[in-house]
Design a protein around this nucleic acid. Structure first.
Length: 260
DNA sequence: ATGGTGGTTAGACCA
C-alpha cells in the first residue's frame, strides 16, 4: 500500500479552507498536517473536513499558531505539548495513525537573530530534540513534519549570501536541525534528485514567488524504518499559484508500506 | 526608496 503524508502551512485555515478541500480531493493524501490554522478549537471546521472524508484532530488558539492533522484513519495517543515546556502557544500535535507516529510541528519563527523570539526558538528546539529521542525509541515508524522555519543548507536558499547568518538560516538554527537528524531522522526531500531552486515558502512581498525568491523551510523527516520504504518526496507548487494563496506550499512524501 | 504583502483584528503584532 502506497501512502502519502503531507504538510502545509496554510496561514489561516479560515481563509484557505476551500483550497485545502480542493487539494485533498486532487492529491488524496492519507495524512495532511496543517500549521498556522489561526483558529480556536470551537471555530475549527470539523464538519467540512469530515464531509471530505477525513478525520481530524487539532490544537488551536486565537489569532496565532494552531496545528491540525487530517487523516483517513483515526488518530490515537494525541499530544499537544512538548513535555517539560509550559507553553500556551499551540505549535505541536502528535498522533498515532495507522501504526505511524506523526508529529506535526510549527516551529517558532524566531523573528531576528539575538531577539527574545530567537532565544525562545532555540530553547523550543532543544526541548523538542530531547523529547523526540524518546519518541524514536517508542515508535519505530515515526514521521516528524511541518513548518520548521529553518532552511537546512545553502541550497535551500535562493540567495545564500544575502541570507547568511539571518534568522531561518543561522548557524545555531542549522545546528539544531542537524541535531534532529542526529537522532536518526532523515530529510526525505533529499533522498531524491530535486530541481535546483526547490523551495516551500516565498515572502508575499516583492513578487518573491514570481521571481522564485524562496526558502525550503517545510520538511518531512522520517525514522529509518520509514526511510527504507520512502518512494518520493516533492514540493507541490500549484497552490502557491492560486488567488489569495498561503505563503507556503505543500510538501508530500510517499511510502510503500508493503515493500519491506 | 532601508520599503514591499497578508492575516487577524480594529492599532498593532506576527510572519
Amino acid at each position: 500500500m502506497n501512502i502519502k503524508i503531507s504538510t502545509w502551512n496554510v496561514n489561516s485555515l479560515k481563509v484557505r479552507l476551500p483550497q485545502v478541500l480542493d487539494w485533498l480531493r486532487e492529491q488524496q493524501p492519507n495524512i495532511l498536517a496543517l500549521q498556522e490554522t489561526k483558529l480556536t478549537d470551537p471555530d475549527f471546521p470539523t464538519l467540512d473536513i469530515a464531509n471530505s472524508g477525513y478525520q481530524v484532530v487539532f490544537a488551536g488558539q486565537k489569532t496565532y499558531n494552531g496545528v491540525a492533522i487530517l487523516s483517513r484513519l483515526p488518530a490515537s495517543e494525541i499530544i499537544t505539548d512538548l513535555p517539560g515546556i509550559d507553553d500556551p502557544q499551540r505549535r505541536v500535535l502528535g498522533a498515532t495513525i495507522g501504526g505511524i507516529r506523526v508529529i506535526n510541528l510549527y516551529v517558532p519563527n524566531g523573528q531576528a537573530v539575538g531577539s527574545d523570539k530567537y532565544a525562545y526558538k532555540l530553547a523550543w528546539l532543544e526541548a523538542l530534540t530531547g523529547w523526540l529521542g524518546n519518541e524514536l525509541v517508542q515508535h519505530p515508524r515515526l514521521i516528524v513534519l511541518g513548518d520548521f522555519n529553518i532552511a537546512p543548507e545553502d541550497r535551500d536558499v535562493h540567495d545564500p549570501a544575502a541570507w547568511a547568518g539571518q534568522v531561518l538560516c543561522s548557524t545555531a538554527e542549522r545546528a539544531a536541525f542537524q541535531r534532529l537528524l542526529g537522532l536518526g531522522l532523515t530529510d526525505t526531500f533529499r533522498l531524491f534528485p530535486q530541481e535546483t531552486g526547490s523551495f516551500s515558502w516565498w515572502d508575499y512581498r516583492a513578487a518573491a514567488f514570481r521571481r522564485n525568491l524562496g526558502l525550503r523551510i517545510d520538511h518531512i523527516l522520517a525514522s529509518p524504518v520509514l526511510v527504507a520504504v520512502c518512494t518520493a518526496c516533492q514540493v507541490d507548487k500549484a497552490p502557491r499559484h492560486l488567488e489569495r494563496p498561503s505563503d507556503h506550499t505543500p510538501v508530500i512524501a510517499e511510502f510503500n508500506l508493503d515493500s519491506h
